[in-house]
């Protein structure tokens, strides 16, 4: 009963925020509303028992998208009229597509139906035998890292590609470490704000600690490489937001961040190649350790480290590039 009430309630919240987004035109309120949208979506994922997905959506929605969006929008984009109804042409086309889709949904299984075909085939084996074969309670992590580990390699490469893309798109691509002289023109005087300084400087170690907890807790509860990478990235970026990007660059220079991005992908790839050299197929961890489960444990631990490294370095690199583009 609680599940149904929560589900329906959150769906209504989601719809109202989506309608609000359709109508607003000012970029700042768009970004704020999309922040609320991602929070409501994350809560809905918790209701639908997708705990890992809620974790990722929360970390990404609250951690990264705000920073990226705020680095791009400017006050002069604020339109005169705050609200506007989309053009009738778009609405008609949208409704047309909607009606077509509605017909498609009539044969779909009901919400929560145990006999739905999706649960009969692959899921039975993953839920049934993943503990003997891989030995990890969190089935999502075992499927993510081992059964479909190659998808996750593709995913890490997607994040790496995004990092490379933003590096290429960086306007003036001087790559040297931040010279002490070049003071960040936009050094916000947050450091001057005693309240923020005292609270947040003590928060950063807490966030980093929580990030590491999530990194290694991925096997037993919700968590894993991606979520940990985003949290660690957010923790490091907090110092940048507090002081300035150039001061953060003196601690963690561009070069190391780019190196970390590339190394994470290589760590993941080399774990797979190690399987090749030991005579098994690519990304087969069973040969890495004495027994199958020991090998799987080691393999999953290593690739999660690779994922965490790439994702956190990419987040920091994104922050540098967007700050670089601004000043």
């Amino acid at each position: 009963m609680i599940n149904v009430v929560a589900d329906v309630g959150l769906l209504c919240l989601l719809l109202t925020v989506a309608l609000a987004i359709v109508c607003t035109r000012s970029p700042l309120s768009l970004v704020l509303l999309s922040g609320i949208y991602s929070i409501a979506l994350c809560t809905l994922f918790v209701i639908l028992d997708a705990v890992d997905v809620a974790f990722t959506e929360a970390a990404v929605g609250a951690g990264i998208s705000a920073i990226l969006f705020f680095a791009v929008i400017r006050p002069e984009d604020e339109p005169v009229t705050a609200f506007s109804w989309p053009s009738s042409r778009a609405i008609l086309l949208g409704l047309g597509v909607g009606v077509l889709l509605l017909a498609g949904t009539l044969d779909m299984p009901m919400y929560g139906d145990h006999l739905a075909p999706a649960h009969q085939h692959l899921a039975l084996r993953f839920l049934g035998q993943s503990f003997e074969e891989i030995g990890i309670p969190n089935v999502v992590t075992s499927v993510l890292a081992s059964y479909r580990g190659y998808d996750t390699l593709g995913e890490v490469v997607v994040i790496f590609t995004a990092g490379v893309a933003v590096l290429i798109l960086q306007p003036d691509n001087k790559k040297g470490p931040a010279k002490p002289g070049d003071r960040d023109r936009f050094a916000p005087e947050l450091m001057g704000n005693p309240v923020l300084k005292t609270v947040l400087l003590r928060m950063i170690p807490l966030v980093v600690l929580f990030g590491l907890y999530v990194q290694f807790h991925g096997d037993y509860g919700p968590g894993g490489g991606f979520q940990a990478g985003v949290i660690l990235g957010a923790g490091v970026i907090t110092y940048g937001l507090l002081s300035s990007a150039t001061r953060l660059k003196r601690i963690i220079s561009d070069k190391w961040v780019t190196l970390g991005m590339a190394l994470g992908v290589l760590v993941y790839g080399l774990v797979g190649v190690a399987g090749l050299f030991l005579g098994a197929n690519f990304l087969d961890y069973s040969v890495l350790g004495p027994t199958q489960t020991a090998g799987q444990h080691l393999g999953i631990l290593l690739i999660e480290l690779g994922v965490g490294l790439t994702v956190s370095c990419t987040m920091v690199s994104l922050y540098y590039c967007f700050k670089q583009g601004e000043s």
Binding site: L153, F160, T258, G272, V273, L276, N281
Partner: peptide, 20 residues
């Protein structure tokens, strides 16, 4: 007998080297 995967892995893992 690993040729199918090598077709994809070779460029995928060499790409980060270009940047490093």
């Amino acid at each position: 007998n690993h040729l199918p995967i090598l077709q994809v892995i070779v460029p995928l893992l060499i790409a980060p080297f270009c940047m490093i």
